[in-house]
Amino acid sequence: MRTRSLILTTAARGLLPLMIVFSVFLLFRGHNEPGGGFVGGLVASAAFALYGFANGVNQARARLHTQPNVLIGAGLLLAAASGLPSLLLGQPFMTGLWSAAQLPVVGKIGTPLFFDIGVYLLVLGVTTMIMFSLAEEAGA
């Protein structure tokens, strides 16, 4: 990764937000069209991979703004927590609760959506954790 081309660096810089937006789009449309948290998370991590490839791992870590393990923990927590509200209502774990409001792309807001967001965060955390530690180990 020593010979970073300027083009790649610049391209990655521009691509990162674009790909993130696309990944979020994939996440939200998943309930109705092919897509979902898993694929979305993968696209997002591909963006960070590309960024890290172009600008170095440290830069990529910085752009992530948080530690991968926090993403993993938060993702799992969100996914698990999305099932908890129904428990409070005396219904089984993971019983879907829905708001009446309708949003574009997403459709109705419900707990399964938060579950999918959890998946998205976790996948992002997992893949960045793997990539970063691989790259750091290679650099060490």
Binding site: G30, H31, P34, G37, A79, A80, P112, F115
Partner: peptide, 30 residues
């Protein structure tokens, strides 16, 4: 409330599977 039946299965009908699945990923990453 979802038209993509596969996704609905993953996040809702069989959400517990997915919860386990992402746990596997988390453990693998660790």
């Amino acid at each position: 409330g979802g038209r993509n039946v596969v996704n609905v299965i993953l996040v809702d009908f069989r959400g517990i599977d997915t919860l386990g699945e992402i746990t596997v990923l988390a453990v693998a990453a660790i």
